[in-house]
Simulated scan of single mutants.
Amino acid sequence: MAKRAPVEEETRTRARTRRAILEAAVSVLGERSTAPLSEVAQAAGVARSTLQRYFPERSDLLAALDDHADELLREATERARIAEGSGVEAFVRLAAEYFPLRDAIMLAWGSGDDPGEPDWLDDQSEYDRALYALIERGHADGTIDRRIAPVWAQQLLWAHLYSAWTYTRTAPASRHEALTACLYSLVKVVCVGDPAKAAAGLVPLPAEH
Rank of each mutant, 00 (worst) to 15 (best):
D122A: 13
D113W: 15
I135D: 07
W120F: 15
Y98D: 00
L62W: 11
F55W: 09
D66P: 02
E97M: 08
D114C: 14
S125D: 03
P150K: 11
A25I: 15
V40N: 14
L134S: 05
D119P: 06
E57W: 07
E71W: 01
R32C: 12
L51P: 00
A69L: 01
Q52H: 08
S33R: 15
D70I: 00
A90M: 02
R79K: 06
H160K: 05
V28P: 01
T168W: 08
L101V: 05
A69E: 03
Q154V: 06
I21S: 02
S86E: 10
I105E: 10
A159R: 10
L62G: 01
D70F: 02
A140C: 07
M106E: 04
R137Q: 10
V46T: 01
A130G: 06
D113R: 15
L161E: 00
R74V: 04
T166L: 03
R74P: 00
R79D: 01
S33M: 12
D141K: 03
R102C: 06
E39W: 14
T50A: 11
D141N: 00
W109M: 11
E97H: 07
E126F: 12
S49Y: 01
E31I: 10
L22H: 02
Y162P: 05
A140P: 12
Q124T: 14
S33E: 14
L156T: 06
A104K: 15
A43G: 11
L72A: 02
P118E: 12
I135K: 09
A83K: 06
G87W: 09
L37Y: 15
D114T: 14
R93H: 13
A104H: 14
L101H: 02
E84Y: 03
D103C: 07
H160G: 05
F55Y: 15
R48C: 07
S59D: 09
W158G: 05
E31Q: 04
L61F: 09
D119C: 06
L37K: 00
D113N: 14
A90G: 14
P115M: 08
D67Y: 01
L62R: 14
A90P: 03
A44W: 00
R53K: 10
Q42F: 11
W152D: 10
A76V: 04
S111L: 13
H68Y: 10
A35K: 02
R74E: 07
E71K: 00
G30S: 12
P36K: 03
R147K: 07
P36T: 05
A47E: 13
Q52G: 05
D60A: 12
A76P: 02
E31W: 04
E78F: 06
E78Q: 08
R81F: 01
W165I: 04
G116C: 07
A20Y: 05
Y127M: 04
T34G: 13
L101Q: 13
A159M: 06
E57G: 04
Y132N: 07
F99I: 02
E71A: 01
